[in-house]
């Protein structure tokens, strides 16, 4: 099980030296969700390769 820790921001502008490492075309939808858990399916295309992924996400420790 992986722990996903992230922060999300708006984009103000693009820096001049921005280096593109990877481009992914993503299609996704949710199959289930409640307060603590969600199930998502995702199709990811990177160049010619396509992957299909099933993901279960649950909330971490929220006592802090």
């Amino acid at each position: 099980m992986n722990k996903e820790i992230e922060r999300k921001y708006a984009v103000k502008y693009l820096p001049k030296d921005l280096k593109v490492e990877k481009v992914e075309e993503i299609e996704q939808a949710y199959l289930y969700e409640d307060v603590n858990t969600n199930i998502r399916i995702r199709k990811i295309q990177i160049k010619e390769a396509i992957h299909y992924i099933y993901t279960v996400k649950t909330k971490g420790d929220t006592r802090n």
């Binding site: 722990k3 992924i53 279960v56 649950t58």
Partner: peptide, 12 residues
């Protein structure tokens, strides 16, 4: 702020 979740992924 910081979002923290556990995730399990499988290829289908």
């Amino acid at each position: 702020g910081v979002s923290s979740k556990y995730e399990i992924e499988s290829n289908i």
